[in-house]
Each structure stands twice: as structure tokens, then as C-alpha cells.
């Protein structure tokens, strides 16, 4: 397993995190960035959808289009963050390759930048993936990589394949020229073992179905699938057999136990006695959910991918919770 972690997590320098809406992909991406920033390593957490989810998660002000340090991981590693803005990325790109100063502004006035970043097919996605790949490849003066890992909080599962594959499409459209070359360069990173695409899911029917569909699409497009991250896993307390007993012949014992615990009288109409029904009802819902989760786990197991499981945090998501999840990811990665 240790070697598996090394192979699948440490070698993939670009880690793309996708998932159905509501599964917590931003949280998982942030926790993964923290987990990878171990032993003095440096990771870059990239946001591409302009939602400022990272800033909200870390409790900082809105991120500018600029890489900045947002967290220090246990052991001295650093997490940097960047919210990629397509328009700025295009101007940067033009500046970098064509030294366009005032012409860039003229383009903006004309609405060309608007066109390029919102309407022209795929250009926006090309710029976003292109910027992330640039960060993956960037080296300092000494020739070392500036970031050990780049973690991308990517678009949701339904759009991830198209998003990552856009460069292929654009390379086909623009059959030569700098856009073509740029698109090819980006695809060479995205389709290599340097990249791993992880899908976040919950143990519920629709997210699991979408995960299975998403993996099939990614595989078909030749994109490297990493892991399935099962998020918000709740502990299981009681099995159905026990519940049946509790609801049936042992109902009175439960009421007495509640009374013993200081929760009121166990007699009919007593406080403890009145708690039994609602508590059993909740437990029955729980048992039903456990059964559904069992089915969904089986579906996920059929996908043949390594899996992470992250617990549901009772207190809700905050910075402490993020570090907790990061620790959990490291632990599971080391096994």
C-alpha cells in the first residue's frame, strides 16, 4: 500500500478533484492539498470556477488572481492557493507569448477577450487547464519544481471529461499555430501519469451512479483516473436485527435503560417511555440508510479503484475539520 500511495499520490503531480455537486469536492481538494504538503513540501491549490470556495473554506478574503500562501501544514509544508480567472489568464498568456501591452487592452475594448473567454468554444477551459499545467511544470532558478503538487478543485463530474479533454478538441479545431501547440502541450500533461483525476462521492444512489458514469467517460477519453473519495461517511451504530428486538420484545428494557440513564420515568406515559418510539424511528431510518450504503459500496467496489473514506464531521466544516480530514487522507494513503 505504501508503494501504491507513492505511485498514485506522490508521483501524480497534478491532482484533479471532481465530484457531483454537493459532495464536498472543494473540501476534499483542500484537505488533499494539506495532506500532500508534508515534510516541507509545497502544494498549490487551484480553483477554476470563480466561486471563491477556497477562500470561504480557509476563512480568508476573496483570493485574487495571484498565488499566495494560505496554510501551513503540520511538518512545515505549505499550501498556496490560486483562483484562476480566465480573462486575466488570457491577457497573461498574450503578454507572455506576444508581448501585447496596449494591444491587449484594445482587444479587451473590442470585446475580443469577452468573446474568447465566454463564447469561443472551449477557449476558457483551455486557459484554465493551461494555467494549471503551467504551475505543474514551473521550475525555479535551481531547476527544481516550484510546487511539488498542484491540486485542482475542478468542475463537477458531469463536465469533467469535457473540461479536461477540451485541449484535444481545440487542437483538432486549430490545426496549427500557437493555440494548437499550447493545447497539445497541456494534453501531454493531462493524459500522462503525472495527472490523477479523483472523484468525490457520497454513499447515495445518484452521486454513485454519476461517479460510475464519470469514470467510464474519463477512461474512454484516456484520462488517468485516480481514486474514488467517499465523503461524509457516517458511523454505523445498530444493525437491523438488534433494532427489531428493540422495537419488539425488548422495548420495555429500552425504556428502563433510558430511565436508568436519568432520562425520566419508564412507565407508560413517562418521559423515558415516550422517547422510545421516536428513537426507534430514527434508528429504523438509520438501518435503512446503512442498507442503502451497503448497496452503494458494492457498486463502488465494482469500479475497481482504490478508495478513500472521509468521515462526516459532526460539528460541520471548519479549519480544524480540514486538518482532521487531511490527517485522515495521509493515514489512508500510507496504509
Amino acid at each position: 500500500m505504501r508503494t501504491q500511495w507513492l505511485r498514485s499520490m506522490a508521483v501524480s503531480r497534478l491532482q484533479v478533484v471532481s465530484g457531483k455537486g454537493g459532495t464536498g469536492k472543494t473540501t476534499v481538494a483542500a484537505a488533499l492539498a494539506l495532506a500532500l504538503a508534508r515534510e516541507g513540501r509545497r502544494t498549490l491549490l487551484v480553483e477554476v470556477e470563480g466561486r471563491q470556495g477556497i477562500a470561504q473554506l480557509f476563512g480568508t478574503e476573496a483570493l485574487p488572481y495571484e498565488e499566495r500562501k494560505i496554510a501551513v501544514a503540520p511538518g512545515g509544508g505549505e499550501v498556496h492557493a490560486l483562483a484562476i480567472d480566465a480573462e486575466r489568464a488570457l491577457l497573461d498568456y498574450l503578454q507572455m507569448f506576444y508581448k501585447l501591452g496596449s494591444a491587449g487592452r484594445a482587444l479587451k475594448k473590442l470585446g475580443a477577450i469577452d468573446f474568447a473567454t465566454t463564447i469561443a468554444p472551449g477557449l476558457r477551459d483551455v486557459l484554465l487547464t493551461g494555467k494549471a499545467c503551467e504551475a505543474v511544470r514551473r521550475k525555479d532558478k535551481a531547476g527544481r519544481f516550484v510546487y511539488d503538487h498542484v491540486v485542482m478543485d475542478a468542475p463537477p463530474t458531469g463536465r469533467i471529461t469535457r473540461f479536461l479533454n477540451v485541449n484535444d478538441e481545440v487542437a483538432g479545431l486549430a490545426r496549427f499555430g500557437p493555440i494548437h501547440n499550447q493545447a497539445q502541450a497541456v494534453m501531454s500533461v493531462l493524459k500522462s501519469p503525472q495527472t490523477a483525476v479523483h472523484l468525490v462521492t457520497l454513499l447515495e444512489e445518484m452521486p454513485v451512479q454519476e461517479t460510475a458514469d464519470g469514470i467510464a467517460e474519463l477512461r474512454e477519453a484516456g484520462l488517468p483516473v485516480g481514486r474514488v473519495v467517499v465523503n461524509k461517511v457516517r458511523p454505523h451504530h445498530l444493525d437491523e436485527e438488534t433494532l427489531r428486538a428493540a422495537a419488539g420484545e425488548r422495548r420495555g428494557e429500552v425504556a428502563q435503560a433510558l430511565a436508568r440513564a436519568g432520562l425520566g420515568g419508564a412507565r407508560r406515559g413517562g418521559l423515558a417511555e415516550r422517547l422510545v418510539d421516536p428513537l426507534l424511528e430514527q434508528a429504523a431510518e438509520h438501518a435503512g440508510r446503512v442498507e442503502l450504503e451497503r448497496e452503494q459500496r458494492a457498486v463502488l467496489a465494482g469500479l475497481g479503484l482504490p478508495t478513500y473514506e472521509l468521515p462526516l464531521l459532526g460539528a460541520g466544516m471548519d479549519l480544524a475539520g480540514l486538518y482532521e480530514l487531511a490527517t485522515e487522507l495521509r493515514k489512508q494513503g500510507d496504509e
Binding site: 458511523p235 454505523h236 445498530l238 444493525d239 450504503e293 451497503r294 459500496r297 467496489a301 473514506e309 489512508q332
Partner: peptide, 13 residues
């Protein structure tokens, strides 16, 4: 109460 068929043991807090 972790299911036997789960690929990874359920981790709980």
C-alpha cells in the same frame, strides 16, 4: 457495523 464487501474498512471518528 462495517460491511464485509467494502473495499476499505469504514473509517469512523
Amino acid at each position: 457495523e462495517t460491511t464485509a464487501d467494502a473495499t476499505t474498512a469504514a473509517r469512523t471518528t
